[in-house]
């Protein structure tokens, strides 16, 4: 497996990277950790005449937790997400989810920006970002704009990001309440058969708010407002969970693949979601 020829660019700033993108248009593509893109290039399923390696852009790195707001540079690796104690304190679900992504080597290279930006429905972070109601910052030739994760995904590998834009950072309010990321996969390193991100706030023994998103059960991550609403006001008991699961099942649209047929995936989606809700509630 050998990729086609390409020209390699390693700009040192966002501005420089945007300039290369502008110059080469559709022929150029940015690369973060490369662990999704490089295998595709080796299989010659992705043709990238101009490859823009973002590793030297310091502006894209770092995690900050300030005043209840979490900001993460797009080039922050999964490994850094896992080992950052401030992040773990502010949003423990980030570490929990990142540990379920790929394997140690891939987590040293794989970045949150790459994970959310390439639009692979199998990636874990997009669903989690929707659950957290995160905001993505996109830098383009006309400046910066911000898009909510919940509005970002259009279809498999299709997002709101324009070809001449770079996703530079992710921010979200440190979540309140109990959090859980639950994932069924065939083995270490696999994408989810089904995964659920759940955050529940508790007040006076009842669910005050709930945010629920699932992964790899549609051609985009699935944030289900209805599933969250089904829990609000309840004691998060069996009936409420069933209502949440029913709502979620109405929003997902899995397809058959080597992980199994549609019926199985729907069943597992319900089981995994229920487990995530139970765990989040127990932590709320």
């Amino acid at each position: 497996m050998i990729p086609s020829e390409f020209e390699y660019h390693r700009p040192g700033s966002i501005a420089a990277a945007l300039a290369v993108l502008e110059e080469h248009g559709d022929d150029a593509r940015v690369m973060a950790g490369g662990h999704s893109l490089i295998p595709m290039m080796k299989l010659r399923m992705a043709d990238v005449p101009h490859l823009i390696d973002l590793q030297s852009i310091d502006e894209l790195k770092g995690i900050s937790v300030e005043g209840g707001k979490v900001t993460i540079g797009a080039m922050t690796t999964q490994h850094e997400l896992i080992t950052n104690d401030a992040l773990a304190a502010a949003a423990p679900i980030m570490r929990e989810a990142a540990l379920l992504i790929a394997d140690p080597q891939v987590r040293y290279m794989g970045t949150i920006g790459g994970n959310v930006a390439n639009g692979d429905p199998g990636n874990d972070m997009p669903g989690l970002m929707q659950c957290l109601d995160a905001t993505f910052s996109l830098h383009g030739p006309d400046g910066t704009r911000e898009v909510q994760a919940r509005d970002f995904y259009e279809a498999a590998y299709m997002t709101d990001r324009e070809d001449d834009e770079i996703l530079t950072r992710i921010s979200f309010a440190a979540p309140k309440g109990g959090q859980a990321y639950e994932k069924q996969k065939r083995k270490i390193g696999d994408y989810a058969t089904a995964a659920a991100a759940v955050i529940i706030e508790k007040a006076s023994g009842k669910v005050a708010s709930a945010s629920i998103a699932m992964t790899n059960l549609s051609d985009t991550p699935v944030f289900s407002e209805a599933a969250g609403s089904a829990l609000v006001g309840s004691d998060c008991g069996s009936d409420a969970m069933s209502n949440a699961v029913s709502a979620m099942l109405g929003d997902i649209d899995p397809t058959e693949d080597n992980r199994g047929p549609v019926e199985f995936k729907k069943h597992v989606a319900g089981v995994i979601l229920r487990r995530a809700i139970e765990r989040a509630w127990s932590r709320a």
């Binding site: 490369g34 662990h35 490089i38 295998p39 080796k42 140690p104 080597q105």
Partner: peptide
């Protein structure tokens, strides 16, 4: 060759990396 097996693992700047990817 698809970053699953790790036989190509080397250490780069303190990180374990699959050098085929």
């Amino acid at each position: 060759e698809t970053s699953h097996c790790g036989a190509c693992t080397v250490d780069i700047d303190g990180k374990s990396v699959k050098s085929c990817t």
